[in-house]
Amino acid sequence: MSEVWFTALVLAVGLERVAELIVSSRNAAWSLARGGVESGRGHYPFMVVLHTGLLVAAVAEVWLLDRPFRWWGWVALVVVLLAQLLRWWCISTLGRQWTTRVVVVPGARRVGSGPYRFVAHPNYVAVVAEGAALPLVHSAWMTALAFTVLNAVLLRTRLAAERAALRELV
């Protein structure tokens, strides 16, 4: 896979993220209009910077450090695609309750179907998998490592906020 194709892949993931933000904004507005309460606002800007940084750094590392495409890049690409499928399964399962922020409508029911039957936070499984695999599609191992470490720190804060907020659900 050439650097150009990798850049196109990262741009496609970036466009997917824009689609997520559109869905998230609509869902957050819907939830807030019904008395939804947002938690964990303080960490959200760091999340935005980290996820944007993943995309920029992956492309920069490939181009600036002349990272080669290796055969295992195909495996990483499959992981990236599976992460997208899992993410959109989460979004469709949660419906209007899904946002990139932690917004909970008091009295709403906690979702236990779809991927939530198997794991409490499947969207974060997708985030972790994608964050490691996307840069590795084209051997950008420094970006994969940095994102993984920083994301682990951030997810600790995010999960604490989310768990506290979800206690409010029925």
Results as ranks from 00 to 15, higher is better:
51 H>S: 01
44 Y>G: 03
120 A>G: 03
49 V>H: 00
76 A>W: 03
23 V>M: 08
18 V>L: 15
148 T>D: 01
45 P>I: 01
12 A>E: 04
16 E>T: 09
60 A>Q: 06
9 L>F: 08
24 S>Q: 07
161 A>C: 09
59 V>K: 07
161 A>M: 00
140 A>I: 10
163 R>C: 00
31 S>N: 05
8 A>H: 00
13 V>H: 10
26 R>P: 00
105 V>M: 02
67 R>N: 04
26 R>S: 11
110 R>G: 07
124 Y>A: 05
121 H>K: 07
24 S>H: 09
123 N>L: 08
147 F>T: 09
134 L>H: 13
52 T>P: 00
125 V>L: 15
137 V>W: 12
58 A>M: 09
46 F>N: 00
21 L>Q: 13
135 P>S: 02
158 R>C: 02
5 W>R: 11
85 L>V: 15
32 L>W: 06
33 A>W: 03
95 G>I: 10
73 G>N: 11
125 V>M: 05
94 L>P: 01
40 G>I: 02
43 H>L: 01
76 A>D: 12
142 M>I: 14
63 W>A: 12
25 S>W: 12
86 L>H: 11
16 E>P: 02
154 L>I: 03
127 V>Q: 11
24 S>K: 07
149 V>E: 05
38 E>N: 02
119 V>D: 05
18 V>F: 13
73 G>K: 12
15 L>W: 13
28 A>K: 15
84 Q>K: 03
51 H>N: 15
100 T>R: 05
67 R>M: 10
